[in-house]
Amino acid sequence: MAQVLEIRGLHARAGEKEILTGLDLEVGPGEVHAIMGPNGSGKSTLAGVLAGRPGIEVTAGEVRFEGADLLGLSPEVRAREGVFLAFQYPVEIPGVNNNYFLKASLNAVRSHRGQDELDAMDFLALCREKMARVEMPKELLSRPINDGFSGGEKKRNEILQMLLLEPKLSILDETDSGLDIDALRLVSEGVNALRSPERSMLVITHYQRLLDYVVPDFVHVLAEGRIVRSGGKELALELEETGYRSLESQTAATNP
């Protein structure tokens, strides 16, 4: 059986600057991989490449999702196929009702998967159930998307979308940033609720803190656009103690 995600020799740049410099990664079904690394190491660029963000150019390498080429697909088709990116900075969209958006999103994904679209009543029932899981206040559903939401509310809205769309591969881009400990716990519970042998996750984070709650199977360290070390969950703890600085000397040493 093919891996959920296979990245080989990935080079990518944003504008003139080469950010990913030969990244390899494999994620199997049901696995949770953490990607850690200092600022500027390419973590968010990796998330952007996987979701199809405009402005990032892949110059070499390949990315396969469930055995098929991912990079040729539009962002919406990736989403419908089961790739989900939880944004580091969820976008505020005034004038567009959250409820309407979530329903349109879920139905776009459902119809792609050959499932019936949900009507307003069924959608609302499902949505309320998922909202309860992340303790999201009901009134956020009738507000414009993320408009005036607090940092924690925005992240909960992201996890709500993830719970609704039930992706096969979830990419969490610094979901822990800007969260207090209670919000972090709630968001993590939401993420953990989705863990299953069919669902894989890529948890991108600067700090080890999130990994206390969402415990990864593997930890990778990204530096200067490539993975320089991989290990089990204990690697995260080690990094917490030694910091990324100790890695930089290693990178320098391993660079040809």
């Binding site: 962002p75 989403a79 004038g95 958006f101 349109a104 769309l165």
Partner: peptide, 22 residues
């Protein structure tokens, strides 16, 4: 905003309409 909506499965035309409506 367009990219955000598209990563949630909405095609480009639908996303544009939604933002215009907004």
């Amino acid at each position: 905003a367009l990219f955000y909506l598209r990563t949630r499965g909405l095609d480009e035309d639908t996303a544009r309409d939604l933002l215009t409506r907004g």
